[in-house]
Amino acid sequence: MNKNNGTYIIVTWNNEKEIEDCLSTVSRYSPKNSKVIVVDNNSNDRTVQIIKEKFPETELIESKENLGFAAANNLALENVSSEYICYLNPDVILTEDILTPSIEILEDQSEVGLVACRLKNKDGSNQPSCFNFANSWSLPCEILHIGAVMPRSLRKKYFLNYYKTNDDFKPDWVIGAEMVMRTKDARAIGGFSTEYFMYTEDMDLCKKISVILKKQIYFISGVSLIHLGGASEAQNVNYNKQKKLFQNDMIFVRKFYGEEEARKTADYMAKAYSMRKLLLKIGYWKKNRKYQIEKNNVAIQLINEI
């Protein structure tokens, strides 16, 4: 295996608006001898053309079909010859070297299996990127925003989506917009799980690192990058996406905790949304009140369907 500084793995699908900024900043802030592999999931825009014309040094794999996020990343992993990899979304913009400090942690701490840096919005504000694994406790708590009223000490353990810190720490899982791993570890767990076509693959990957490798996830607080999709994804609550998220949560819970826990999780989520609906009706009077209630009703319907 060639010990260069690492290989960035990027999966694209109709990313003509983002890919140039992404690859330009990867080139600008990459350590010497690092490599980039892009797998394009059969884009029908100018993504492939932009890569070929402006970034000829990039190893481009053109799929004839949309393989999905997981399978496309795994295809790139087969072609990696470096000791380290960095999974990177095409809608990120680097503002500093993220690879070197991540590799240093992996070299110094054998118990760490994955390192992630802080994600920021384009305006410089922080994006939530560290979470607890989905189960019958964490998902209802997220629905009811219980972490918002909990003390900081409890947030760090049980309510990570509300935990804000300037210190490094080890969460359950991190958003997959940027992840650095040892190549051998990624291969040992089979890369991303392909039962998820989109969403939840990052949580599943982190869980496999914990269960199979017995290793931890490490969050670097002082190194950051911009994730453009974070803000828009937070606003995207359409029916199909929410249905897919619920379905994938159930796949995850069933896979790692069993059928009984999956049934309990769905039941508790439905009860949490019913309670949230009541709270919205009696105590929520912001302008988007009607929208929030409608969104809540859709969630209850979807949970009943799964």
Rank of each mutant, 00 (worst) to 15 (best):
K287H: 12
Y291W: 11
V298A: 06
N288Y: 04
K290S: 14
A272K: 05
Y284L: 04
W285D: 08
Q292V: 01
N296D: 06
Y291I: 11
V298Q: 10
L280I: 00
R289Y: 02
K286C: 10
Q292N: 14
N296Q: 10
K295Q: 15
K281C: 07
I282N: 06
K287R: 08
R276D: 09
K295H: 10
Q292K: 14
Y284N: 14
K281Q: 14
K286R: 14
N288Q: 08
K290Q: 10
V298I: 12
S274Y: 07
I293R: 03
R276W: 10
R289D: 04
N288W: 09
I293V: 12
K286F: 03
A270V: 06
L279M: 14
R289A: 09
A272I: 00
Y284F: 11
N288D: 15
A270L: 13
Y273L: 13
N297G: 10
Y291M: 14
L279V: 12
M275W: 09
I293M: 06
Y273G: 03
K277A: 08
Q292A: 10
A272F: 01
V298C: 05
G283F: 01
I293Q: 12
K281L: 07
R289P: 00
Y284H: 04
E294W: 05
N296Y: 01
R276E: 14
R289G: 01
K290C: 02
S274F: 00
K295P: 00
L278W: 13
K286G: 09
I282K: 15
M275Y: 08
Y291Q: 14
R289V: 07
K281D: 07
Y268W: 13
G283C: 06
N296W: 03
Y273M: 10
A270C: 11
N296T: 09
K271R: 09
M269Q: 02
M275A: 15
N296P: 12
L278R: 11
E294T: 13
N288F: 06
K277D: 00
I293T: 01
A272M: 09
K281S: 11
N297Q: 05
M275S: 14
N288I: 11
K277Y: 13
M275P: 12
M269T: 03
N296C: 15
L279A: 13
L280T: 01
K286I: 00
Y268F: 15
L279P: 03
Y273I: 12
N296F: 05
N296V: 10
V298M: 11
N297H: 06
K295C: 09
I293D: 04
A272Q: 02
N288P: 06
Y268M: 15
